[in-house]
């Protein structure tokens, strides 16, 4: 095992099997000629790029293709009939590394069903790590591939439940795209 290392290190001691010393010796055999040759090679390599197609996207007109795992805006999915999916278990708030970024207030109605009174996410402090989406027991809080989140004030970045919640159809669409069971009742 270690013999292999030693042989290989000898062979790969530097670029294309040459040591630094070799490179100097070779390139100084006739410094002027070789130097000019190398500079010309570099110039031609750069010149070759002149006719390549640009790879930049002109952003507002051309949107980048985002993967379905992209960490964009956080959102709350609903059940298929449009009612709240969130059960107010506070799991997302507890694993969030950014202090009280997610705030949930809930009570239980007469049937012991959870009712979410308040659900706010402060996107101004969110680091889009994805911890909350991972621990959610009902797959409710999820990322949308939406990255255009800038706004004019810090207050506008605090999203409440109304801003966050997707309606039933959108939620079904999301679940379909991400391979989850579509109908959630």
């Amino acid at each position: 095992m270690m013999m292999m290392v030693s042989e290989q290190t000898q062979a790969s001691a530097s670029l294309a099997g040459k040591t630094t010393t070799d490179v100097i010796k070779q390139s100084t055999n006739s410094l002027v000629v070789d130097g000019l040759k190398e500079i010309t090679r570099g110039l031609l390599t750069v010149l070759k790029q002149h006719n390549t197609d640009p790879i930049t996207l002109e952003y507002p007109e051309v949107m980048p293709e985002l993967s379905d795992r992209f960490h964009g805006r956080l959102s709350l999915l609903s059940k298929s009939d449009g009612t709240d999916l969130c059960i107010g278990c506070q799991a997302c708030a507890r694993v969030c590394p950014c202090d009280d970024l997610i705030q949930i207030e809930m009570h239980r109605d007469a049937d012991k069903k959870p009712v979410i009174d308040r659900f706010t996410i402060d996107l101004g402090r969110c680091i889009f790590c994805g911890n909350c989406t991972e621990v959610c027991p009902v797959d409710c809080i999820k990322f949308l591939p939406d990255f255009e989140l800038a706004d004019y004030s810090r207050e506008a970045l605090v999203l409440d439940k109304k801003d966050l919640t997707l309606n039933g159809e959108e939620s079904d669409q999301w679940r379909k795209e991400h391979g989850l069971a579509v109908t959630v009742a």
């Binding site: 010149l47 790029q49 002149h50 006719n51 390549t52 197609d53 640009p54 790879i55 930049t56 002109e58």
Partner: peptide, 13 residues
């Protein structure tokens, strides 16, 4: 423009 073409960008447009 020229430097952006060398680097596969579009340059000012």
């Amino acid at each position: 423009k020229v430097l952006s073409w060398f680097t596969q960008r579009k340059g000012p447009n």
